[in-house]
Design a binder for these strands. Structure first.
Lengths: 110, 110
DNA sequence: TTGATACATGAACAGTTATTCATATTTTCA
DNA sequence: TGAAAATATGAATAACTGTTCATGTATCAA
């Protein structure tokens, strides 16, 4: 056998780096404001002001959270005049959202 | 039409309560220690001391995090003598873990 | 250019949370 | 019963995070 660490990446083995990134990734979904924004963007792109109005949040709060989501490449901006439209930037986001949602609804169901 | 709030639960509509619970739920995955514990338990039940040893964590840290996961019904304990074996308590946990993992690996892939 | 609109950002504050250390509880075995 | 092993818990601390408030930047229209 070989005890080189390169060989260690067998099936089901996940490096600590990946586990760290994974927890960092889930953190983005672990905030009410962000999850509400993500949920809203699931149905298409929305401007910053519209997000704030529809979610009844201050514009500053929305901008701050959008910056976090944008830095993480979860949302992407598009400028149109003075407005900024944000939309989800990753195909996985909806999947993860719905997987969690299914869990919650299933739990409430019984 | 009927404006009773009961009728409001149309497709794609999620109440703020559920969105709040959803974010609370994702928080459990948003910590490195907990995600490492969850990952370890994916392959079966493990005792507290074994978790601490395999993850190189203090026993106290593991117990504290296990309590959080236990309170949230994400893990369940089983006593055997003086040992406590913990295992995942919900079929969805592995699914959510893997959905996130797929995202991370896919992101690193390109 | 000036004013107004839309958005971004920085600093400060408050609330939350994970870890550490000490100690308590539970079970087994001599 | 007493000691040891395995785990749980409480309090304190330090670090992190979201919101607020004030202000800065960019774009358009007159």
């Amino acid at each position: 056998m070989n005890n080189c660490s390169c060989i260690k990446n067998v099936k089901n083995e996940v490096s600590m780096d990946v586990l760290f990134e994974l927890s960092e990734f889930f953190k983005f979904f672990g905030d009410t404001t962000r999850i509400r924004i993500i949920h809203l963007l699931l149905s298409g792109e929305v401007s910053v002001n519209d997000i704030a109005e529809k979610l009844n949040l201050e514009q500053s709060v929305v901008s701050h959270q959008l910056r976090i989501l944008r830095t993480a490449n979860l949302v992407k901006p598009r400028r149109d005049g003075r407005k900024m439209f944000y939309s989800l930037d990753d195909e996985h986001i909806g999947l993860i959202f719905n997987t969690g949602l299914t869990h919650i609804l299933h739990k409430k169901g019984k």
